[in-house]
Design a protein around this nucleic acid. Structure first.
Length: 675
DNA sequence: ATTAGGG
DNA sequence: CCCTAAT
């Protein structure tokens, strides 16, 4: 097998760790009906868990079914078996399956609005708002002294060698149309909820590998694998178990004498390589330099019903802490900085105790098929059992749609690096600012100020089409990403033309044109970038889209953004977030050249102040870099140049100025040496 | 905070 | 554009 071969993993979404049994807005409102915005906040409470810390587990449908790939150090290659990926036939049965790779999802999450009882999602008794993102990881303590695989193995009661059933047998499988259970009375319990269509097919944890050091290639599996978000709580999410729709599966910890475990299902989530999509991607170069993570947005919508469940293990924190510290070592300095910050946040979070997450879980009983194609998110809604005026809408989010992303990683990369790549990608998308969109009948609910009732979300109406969707913060994505982003919002049943925005703003702002007319050397006018910014910034494009094209609904309104409790829009995300690419326009180049001609190279701050003072997004480093590339561009043949062509006249001036100032510099140095 | 240079 | 080292 060719080692250099790369695997492309497309992600359309992630399984979400078991969400809070109940979530309620921190604030109460006198109004009987929650605003749509509030509805979004609830999911955010849940998402706080995600935002806080993400772990990524790999599940590869090897012989043992969907066992979790715990050996992060296995080479991806071998996930396909030693003989390569040729023998996929062995494992790829229901390759088709309702839920193609484009549909990953969920765990059930009850959401109750307004609050019922005092329950608030707080599995650890923590104030999620305050801690989820800023948590810090305490030193791994004892765990540090062990190999990760060891500690993991210890914590997991499910070890290799056990017969699946016994070990995995800690799952309670409810038959179809069984009401969801509210588990989790005790700490350390493992709980899993999901839907399976009929048979209680469950994957076992057995055979999970426990070393992150093993290369991916050392795992045997075909290339259908899946990523699982592991919740970073007191319990460790080890893996998830794809199951069919229709049944609620509850899993408990091994200490529990729960019953009913079943054998690995034949269901395998196909994991097809996803082809590159030109501009619609963000490349995240991993520390390892060998992994590329390309978040990407999918256009398809989640098909309803897809369900998977997630198992949690205790001692999650310990493991997590250790894991984090562990990874840290393999990360370059810059990555380490992230972890340092994270570390801080986690410990905060761990200080509190657990709280009962008593909730009412509701479930759509018989009509379980959730086959409404327009459902973006799996959602269960139950008629309120509270009669009277104060009707409540009980919602349970079974799934969140997560933007698809593309992972490209060498086969020789370790599973660990794959996980990191995924986390990285997730962080890139979610860390930048998590947003939740509310969809009704497949359409985005745009007005956050409407009440649920006004919006049509009421207990006495069909809410099948109600969905929640995770949205990346548009402000963090380059214009080129917009089409993909926006496409997320389109109703799958009513394809509408995408609002396209040029990946590269080729437009020359009027202001800049004026600038060109200015006499050289005289008043170096400053480029006023406000206009440019407004036309290129995603946010503005969204507004623009709202005004110009009703085909698309803005991803999020400012209101939502402001209201959303994203405390974790931490430095982490800001650091991680790569700035969007903003190619220099000819006008800007003109201004730059002019400024450099006047001020010379090496005075970038002055250049900035002089010509780009109002262009907030152009730093002096940017200008310096641009000059560098301009010089390079000027030296190469026009055929080799890319992007918006720069007038030769400007390039000539670039060379001239470059030569001139280079000469000046050398003279200065000579003078210094003489002195 | 800036500058310079490699990636 | 990012990241670092050196000022």
């Amino acid at each position: 097998m060719v080692l250099s071969r790369r695997l492309d993993y497309g992600f359309n979404g992630y399984q979400v760790p078991s969400m809070p049994r109940a979530a309620r807005s921190a604030r109460r409102r006198s109004s009987a009906w929650k605003n749509v915005e509030d509805a979004k906040l609830c999911p955010f409470d849940l998402l706080a868990t995600l935002a806080g810390n993400l772990l990524v587990g790999n599940s590869s449908p090897a012989s043992t079914g969907n066992s979790s790939t715990q050996n992060d150090n296995c080479v991806i290659n071998d996930l396909n078996g030693e003989e390569g990926y040729a023998d996929q036939s062995d494992h790829s049965e229901p390759q088709q399956d309702d839920r193609s790779s484009s549909e990953k999802e969920i765990i059930n999450s009850p959401i109750i609005l307004p609050d019922i009882g005092e329950a608030k999602y707080n599995p650890s008794g923590i104030d999620i708002h305050a801690s989820a993102g800023d948590a810090s990881v305490k030193p791994a303590g004892t765990a540090n002294t062990k190999d990760q695989s060891e500690s993991l193995g210890e914590m997991l009661s499910c070890e290799q060698g056990n017969t699946d059933s016994e070990r995995v047998g800690d799952f309670v499988v409810d038959g179809p149309s069984v009401l969801p259970k509210v588990e989790d009375e005790t700490l350390g319990q493992m709980k899993v909820e999901s839907h399976i269509s009929s048979g209680a097919d469950v994957y076992s944890l057995k055979d999970h590998v426990t070393s992150d050091k093993k290369p991916l290639a050392q795992h045997s599996s075909n290339n259908s694998s899946q990523m699982v978000l592991c919740e970073n709580k007191d319990q460790l999410s080890l893996s998830s178990f794809p199951v069919k729709n229709g049944v609620t599966v509850v899993s408990r910890d091994n200490d529990d004498n729960s019953s009913g475990c079943t054998h690995p299902s034949s269901y395998k989530k196909p994991f097809r390589p996803v082809p590159y999509i030109g501009d619609r991607r963000i490349r995240k170069v991993l520390a390892s330099q060998s992994c590329k993570v390309i978040p990407r947005y999918k256009k398809k919508f989640l098909r309803p019903g897809g369900g998977q469940y997630q198992a949690h293990c205790r001692d999650r924190d310990r493991w997590l802490n250790y894991q984090r510290c562990q990874s840290q070592r393999n990360f370059p300095f810059k990555k380490r900085k992230f972890y340092d910050m994270d570390c801080q946040s986690i410990s905060d979070k761990e200080t509190n105790g657990k709280s009962g997450d008593n909730i009412c879980t509701s479930r759509k009983s018989s009509k379980e098929d959730c086959s409404a194609p327009e459902r973006f998110t799996s959602l269960a809604v139950q008629r309120s059992s509270f009669p009277g005026v104060n009707s409540h809408v009980k919602l349970r989010i079974e799934s969140f749609r997560v933007p698809e992303m593309l992972i490209e990683i060498p086969e020789t990369a370790t599973v660990g690096s794959l996980k990191r790549a995924v986390v990285d990608a997730m962080t890139t998308i979610l860390g930048g600012g998590l947003h939740v969109g509310v969809l009704l009948q497949g359409k985005k609910v745009g007005d956050d100020n409407k009440t649920l009732q006004q919006t049509g979300i009421s207990h006495d109406r069909a809410l099948d089409a109600l969905g929640f969707m995770l949205e990346p913060d548009p402000a963090h994505y380059p214009p080129s990403m917009s089409p993909g982003c926006l496409s997320l919002l389109r109703h799958c049943d009513a394809p509408q033309p995408l609002m396209r925005h040029p990946a590269t703003p080729t437009n020359v702002q009027p202001g800049n044109c004026n600038k060109l007319a200015e006499p050289r050397g005289a008043n170096l006018g400053k480029l006023v970038e406000s206009d440019r910014d407004s036309t290129t910034s995603p946010m503005n494009m969204l507004r623009k889209g709202r005004a110009e094209s009703k085909a698309l609904v803005p991803i999020s309104s400012m209101n939502a953004i402001a209201a959303v409790p994203i405390h974790r829009k931490s430095k982490r995300s800001e650091i991680a977030q790569r700035r969007i690419r903003r190619p220099f326009s000819v006008a800007e180049v003109e201004a730059l050249v002019q400024a450099v001609e006047k001020l010379g190279t090496g005075r970038w701050r002055d250049v900035k102040l002089c010509a780009f003072d109002s262009a907030k997004h152009r730093t002096y480093v940017d200008l310096k870099d641009k000059w560098k590339t301009l010089v390079h561009t000027a030296k190469i043949s026009p055929q080799q140049r890319r992007g918006e062509p720069v007038p030769q006249e400007l390039l000539d001036r670039v060379l001239t100025a470059h030569a001139y100032w280079a000469q000046q510099q050398s003279r200065q140095q000579q003078l210094k040496q003489l002195l």
